[in-house]
Amino acid sequence: MIRVCGLRKRYGSLVAVDGVDFEVARGETFGLLGPNGAGKTTTIHMLVGVLAPDGGTVRIDGDGDPMRAAVRRRIGVAPQALALYDDFSANENLRFFGQLYGLTGASLRDAISHALHITGLEARRHDYVKTYSGGMKRRLNLAVAVMHRPDILLLDEPTVGVDPQSRNHLFENIEALSAEGCTVLYTTHYMEEAERLCDRVAIMDHGRILALDTVDALIDAHGGSSVVEAELERPPSEGVAVPGRLNGTSLRVDTARPFETVAQLAGSGLQLRTCVVRRPDLESVFLNLTGRSLRDA
């Protein structure tokens, strides 16, 4: 559905996107995971034809060039910034943007009602956006993006500054759209969101894609070993063999077979107060690929 080949964009001496290649299949939810400044938003802007790439190509559904208005009509975008008119109500925002996509009359009214329904904003539809909470604005931002029923939905950091309740609501909306067959491209720097929503994830940093695969495959390939962390009742006696690193009563064991390690600890005569198994995640993947934590990058 989306094919990106050798995409490049430079601002002066800064290379924002440096030879990015990926493909997104129809109905797939694809994640671009990377820290701020990784080049995710610039990539999105080139995907929708707002920015002209310095090199490479973007093709939508075969040979569609997003620079053409007819191709963009099939795309919905929820920008990172809350792209809404604060002095308009939700209804007025949706009406205005719907009209730009050629919706009129009954089809426009239906689209507005549907968008308000799926984002749970019906009760506040006539209130000015400036009176909304951050979470409600995010939901309306999504509503505007989906109201014309696009084939492709581009979501650029859609949960920034959103409370947990609104975040869950947004996730449910995105999962529902995906279930309806909508192709979703989702950028985020929250690994939990990518893990929950995305079929495949591209890890991006400094304008380049470092790895691209399913979440499980990425973890298997780049996540490293699991960690078993245990807290002992008392320090082990002299001569008792303890796996891993011991610091007072805290024990940490890096292992490829965490459950075998837990069983071994239980049978070793050590008295455990707590025991936690930590599987590697996308954070570990990013750490192993870049040498930096995703949150610190």
């Binding site: 009509r73 809404l84 008119y85 050629g102």
Partner: peptide, 15 residues
């Protein structure tokens, strides 16, 4: 331009 609505307008099927 700053609020992002210009981006949204440019993403819409308009010239």
């Amino acid at each position: 331009r700053k609020s992002g609505t210009l981006l949204r307008l440019r993403v819409a099927p308009l010239t």
